[in-house]
Amino acid sequence: MTGLPESARPRERLLRLGIGALSDPELVAILLGSDRPEGLTLVTADEDLQAFGPVTTLW
């Protein structure tokens, strides 16, 4: 997710602020990885959560 400012990148936010500071889409984006173009991982994560429900129901 190099297209996002460093302060908005989920992995960097996780390291800086801890897991409690991340939204569900940010957590899923970390799991999906960063092989998608600029910010698309967050969009994909958000779409997946809308389709399958919140993170707490995924495991």
Rank of each mutant, 00 (worst) to 15 (best):
T2P: 10
T2G: 15
G3W: 12
G3V: 01
L4Q: 07
L4G: 01
L4V: 01
L4E: 05
L4F: 00
P5V: 04
S7G: 06
S7P: 05
S7W: 13
A8S: 12
A8N: 10
A8E: 15
A8C: 10
R9S: 06
P10K: 01
R11P: 04
R11K: 09
E12T: 15
E12S: 14
R13D: 04
R13K: 15
R13F: 10
L14N: 03
L15H: 13
L15T: 06
L15S: 07
L17S: 10
L17R: 06
L17W: 03
L17E: 11
L17K: 03
L17M: 06
G18C: 04
G18Q: 04
I19L: 11
G20A: 05
A21I: 02
A21H: 12
A21M: 08
A21W: 09
S23E: 08
D24F: 05
D24V: 01
D24Y: 06
P25G: 04
P25T: 03
E26K: 00
E26L: 05
L27A: 09
V28Y: 01
A29K: 04
I30A: 08
L31D: 07
L31R: 05
L31G: 14
L32R: 08
L32P: 02
L32K: 00
L32W: 00
G33C: 12
G33Y: 13
G33F: 13
S34R: 07
D35T: 11
R36P: 05
P37V: 01
P37D: 00
P37F: 02
P37M: 02
E38G: 14
E38S: 10
G39H: 09
G39A: 06
G39E: 08
L40C: 10
L40D: 05
L40E: 15
L40N: 05
L42K: 09
L42F: 10
V43G: 03
V43R: 14
V43K: 09
V43E: 15
T44H: 12
T44N: 09
A45Y: 10
A45F: 11
D46W: 06
D48I: 12
L49N: 04
Q50E: 12
Q50G: 13
A51G: 11
F52S: 05
F52H: 03
F52K: 13
F52M: 12
G53P: 00
G53V: 02
P54E: 02
P54D: 07
V55I: 15
T56Q: 14
T56F: 12
T57D: 03
T57K: 04
T57N: 05
T57L: 00
T57G: 00
L58S: 08
L58A: 08
L58P: 08
L58E: 00
W59F: 13
W59G: 14
